[in-house]
Design a protein around this nucleic acid. Structure first.
Lengths: 209, 209
DNA sequence: CAAAATTTTGACCGGTTGGACAAACGTTAG
DNA sequence: CTAACGTTTGTCCAACCGGTCAAAATTTTG
């Protein structure tokens, strides 16, 4: 019995990967119920029954995708630790998170879709693993505040605000580009965003003097 | 010919309102494609053909909902004007926006759903009405910066960050509550958020001295 | 009351979708 | 070659879904 490692041949590994890649594309733009197995199969270059040979149910694909997603998605937060200057640490967390929004917008949208609909499939993860991680990092941040290294405020809401502002550039990308227009909505928007966010989180809006 | 005001009896007005209310509930939690006419009809307490008597197509309901939504949704930004102290003006914009996230989370989620999927139905509005409004307000904010009333930064990204942080409490509500836990995730979370956001946007994270 | 107009419903339809299945195809090992 | 195993596909099905339609029920109007 080997329930924890049921993988077989190399072909299966490759095909499963192909399907997951295709499913990420389709799910992230159409949502779970808005996506069809046929769409995913076509995007993966195979027939529907063939796809169902590798994943028995549509939900299995989604579940596998979500499991992998959470690991990579929370990696930047996991890296946040006590060594180094607090402000620098927070600044690079924001930068990494923004880079993920730029480089993995599909993952961000998939996650947003799931949360928007009430997180029916990952609620236990949110209340368990995620809460534990955030609480742990909030304690670190609280320590920084007590030591006078950063301003005193609510660490949890601070983390929320970093998530919100960075993921916004992935989840609401079409809106951002529409509002910025053709000239400013190009590739440079992420650098503009990085500059702005750094200033916002470090200094706020009050004029310097 | 009265294409602009095709409303008829009082019953029609009431039933249409009933349907829109039910559709808001269903669409905002399941997305457009994830929602069925049957679900909406049941939530509105009527049969499917009866619902289709008031709205001929599923898309008509969604379209009507989106049109109304945008007006109320952008109201807080429209109120932002040049009279009064800039920092106070921005602070009350943030507060109003957060109140909307608290009082109209379904509207926020409906909008988020639409944007997430590439805004297929409201793209023209984003590039037209919305962009015009944001550009106009960005000009006002730029004036404040030139006058030294607030710190110099990018007005567009400032507006994005206000949208992102406030709507986060509606769109990602389940995640916020899961992470905050039973004790801190109660009704007080919006007041905590308001306090945090005020501090973030005004002073940033650098320690006071 | 009676005719006209409006509202509601049951039955139905065509298209789509998730999924099952067995047969065919390919590949590898003896 | 051939048997065994893994892979691929055509076909099919039952459930669902958006939408139609005609008839029935109700309300409005004269």
């Amino acid at each position: 019995m080997e329930g924890s490692a049921p993988r077989r041949t190399r072909i299966q590994q490759e095909k499963r990967e192909l399907i997951l890649e295709a499913a990420l594309e389709v799910f992230s733009t159409n949502g779970f119920r808005g996506s069809t197995i046929d769409q995913i199969a076509e995007a993966a270059g195979m027939s529907k029954p063939n796809l169902l040979y590798y994943f028995r149910r549509k939900e299995d694909i989604h579940e596998t995708l979500m499991q992998r997603l959470l690991d990579t998605w929370l990696a930047p937060l996991r890296e946040l630790d006590d060594i180094g200057d607090p402000l620098t640490e927070l600044r690079s967390y924001i930068r990494r998170k923004l880079e993920m929004a730029r480089d993995f917008p599909r993952e961000s949208r998939l996650f947003a879709n799931e949360i928007l609909q009430g997180a029916p499939r990952i609620m236990p993860l949110l209340e368990g693993e995620l809460k534990t991680l955030v609480d742990e990092k909030a304690t670190i941040i609280k320590g920084w505040m007590r030591a006078g290294k950063i301003a005193k405020t609510d660490p949890w809401h601070l983390i929320f605000s970093i998530w919100a502002t960075t993921q916004h550039y992935a989840d609401f990308d079409v809106q951002v580009r529409a509002v910025l227009g053709a000239d400013r909505g190009g590739d440079g928007r992420f650098e503009d965003a990085a500059r702005f966010l750094e200033q916002l989180f470090l200094d706020g809006l009050k004029p310097k003097d």
